[in-house]
Design a protein around this nucleic acid. Structure first.
Length: 557
RNA sequence: UGACCCAUUGUGUAAAGGUAGCACUACAGUUUUUGGUACUGUCAGUCAAGGUUCGAAUCCUUGUGGGUCAACCA
């Protein structure tokens, strides 16, 4: 860690190091990750998680996990649990207990009362529409509410009765008296509290008034001794208000809000609302559908936490809007999977191949290296015999010169085994090839020292001893780089109809019989695959996490 | 039309007034019992115009382009 001291700092690290130099906050660094528990986390959240927890670790500081649960109508324990699981899975541990904004409801209420007593807040009785109309426009100053100059006593009484449940939803709100003429719309007497007769996932029915985000967030940061409150760019305009509340209510060290540009990825959508639409419309199987950009989706797809952390690290942090290419994510994924997964042989679209000069009913053990990238990984045995399966794509009747695979009269090596020559093939009545007839050269067994070069090396499995599996081939969910970027078209019009292909009767080498859910492999020459959560002992199911780079596929086009 | 923010190869991100670098992508090649990996190379950039300076991606001005803001959402 100390060695890579030369690494340049992003703008947040620069701010932190300057604060440290100046001795701010007793030289503490304390960040927080503050999701609202109203949905599942996605890879955009992962960027924020890695940023906040990363900074905490980097500066020997702390990082809190706080659920921003100020809106009981949208929030549920189900989401709390999934968020906790995702943060842990990504490899992070928060300091102290998990925090909830709802833990501070009493303090927030007391602060609101304090503002009223100081003449800085008032109870508003107009409708949302009227308030909105009076707020003016960015170009036009707003006008005062007729309730703005109520007496402190009346405000106190009304606010207390709001809390006691005397009023209906929407009938009253508490507003701060800030500046109706501010060019910043956030400052035009923002709402502090609204009435919501709703069950809260943690406080139950104790409260029927709930603080708004702006009144809760900065103060929660302050209460938790947060030093750097990092959020996304859309809160930039809220910062003056964030500071205004703290000016009124805080003393001593105060958190500072810093905004960064959220992550955008091409060929997907990232907003919770759109993802929900995909789930509810059954365009995907759920929040953890392997095509979803959710953490749970990526996990099921076969992504590793390391790869996601590494991705977050490499995309950097800045303030300009950005769209990251998925190819970078995939590169980083492959980079990790290449190092950690065993190579195995699986035939997705099998075709029979018979070696006529190999004795019938006989088998031999073929030793295969598990992972050439990892000497520790050792080797395993696969059975070889007269009848095997190879990939349909690896045979062509009239093959071009650059086709390094099997074709009548040509030779290839079977990975780890022998060189074979295609002597003939059989077709059905429609002309489809149904069997390939070959001979093998017994002198060419792998490791025998014979130095005969052939261009092609094919993967294969024993016909009799292979096992069956279902394999799900996933591709990008959208055909369009920016599904949301079309004014006249709904994003769902750009869904990729081929984003999932289910293959059954795939043939796997027998060593895979013991594979457990989540186990990851490289299927030689095909890609990286993992065992899906749907998999059972009698029905193995694999997901394709990502294909291998395929320069042959490119050449064919 | 107001306020705030942003602008560096196709993409992302560095260079804190002093050689525009790194990664991905694309393309070429070497190695290879994976058309994988690894390695090498090629293409390609400071939004524009002024100003300050010996010197500007960096500072200033103006313009242009993009983003955010007018929920009792966060």
């Amino acid at each position: 860690m100390e060695i890579e001291k030369e690494k340049s700092l992003n703008f947040i690290e620069q701010i932190i190091e300057k604060d440290l130099e100046e001795g701010k906050n007793e030289k503490r660094v304390h960040t927080r990750f503050p999701p609202e528990p109203n949905g599942y986390l996605h890879i955009g959240h992962a960027k924020s998680i890695c940023l906040n927890f990363g900074l905490g670790k980097q500066y020997n500081g702390k990082t809190n996990l706080r659920f921003d649960d100020t809106n009981p109508t949208k929030e549920e324990d189900e989401y709390v649990n999934s968020i906790i699981e995702d943060v842990k899975w990504l490899g992070f541990q928060w300091d102290g207990e998990i925090c909830f904004t709802s833990d501070y409801f009493q303090q927030l209420y007391d602060w609101a009362v304090q503002l009223i007593k100081e003449g800085k807040a008032y109870v508003e009785e107009q409708s949302a529409e009227e308030i909105s109309a009076q707020r003016g426009t960015p170009q036009m100053p707003g006008t005062f509410s007729p309730f703005r100059d109520r007496s402190i006593e009346e405000n106190l009484d009304l606010f207390d009765r709001m809390r006691l449940g005397e009023f209906e939803n929407g009938s009253k709100v508490l507003r701060a008296k800030v500046d109706m003429a501010s060019p910043n719309m956030q400052m035009r007497d923002p709402v502090l509290y609204r009435i919501l007769h709703a069950h809260h996932h943690r406080t139950g029915n104790k409260w029927c008034i709930y603080p708004m985000y702006d009144f809760a967030h900065g103060q929660s940061d302050y209460l938790e001794n947060i030093t750097h409150s990092i959020c996304t760019l859309e809160f930039e305009n809220h910062r003056p208000l964030y500071d205004w509340f703290l000016d009124q209510l805080a003393s001593g060290d105060r958190p500072q809000q810093i905004e960064f540009a959220r992550l955008n990825l091409n060929y997907t959508v990232m907003s919770k609302r759109k993802l929900l639409e995909l789930v509810e419309g059954s365009y995907v199987s759920g929040w953890d559908d392997p095509r979803m950009p959710t953490i749970s989706g990526l996990r099921r797809r076969g992504y590793t936490p390391e790869s996601i952390r590494n991705f977050a690290d490499r995309i950097g942090v800045a303030k300009r809007d950005n769209v990251i290419e998925v190819s970078l994510l995939e590169f980083i994924l492959r980079e990790h999977l290449n190092k950690i997964t065993d190579r195995v042989m699986a035939v997705l679209k099998p075709i029979k191949l018979t070696i006529t000069n190999y004795p019938e009913g006989e088998f031999e053990d073929i030793e295969l290296i598990n992972n050439p990238e990892d000497e520790q990984s050792g080797s395993r045995i696969a059975p070889f015999g007269r009848n095997i399966y190879i990939e349909q794509d690896d045979f062509m009747i009239d093959a071009p010169k650059k086709f390094f695979r099997l074709s009548p009269g040509r030779e290839v090596r079977l990975k780890g085994a022998y060189i074979i020559k295609c002597e003939d093939y059989k077709t059905d009545e429609n002309g489809n090839v149904i069997e390939i007839i070959c001979t093998y050269d017994p002198a060419t067994k792998s490791g025998s020292g014979i130095n005969r070069k052939v261009k092609g090396v094919l993967h294969w499995v024993s016909a009799e001893k292979s096992i069956d599996a279902e394999i799900r081939l996933y591709d990008r969910l959208f055909n369009d780089e920016d599904p949301m970027g079309h004014k006249d078209a709904d994003f769902k019009e750009f869904l990729n109809n081929d984003s999932l292909k289910v293959l059954t009767n795939c043939k796997l080498e027998p060593s895979l019989a013991t594979a457990k859910v989540n186990d990851k492999f490289q299927f030689q020459r095909l890609g990286y695959f993992c065992v899906d959560t749907d998999s059972t002992e009698n029905n193995l199911v694999f997901n394709r996490t990502v294909s291998l780079r395929d320069s042959w596929a490119k050449k064919r086009k």
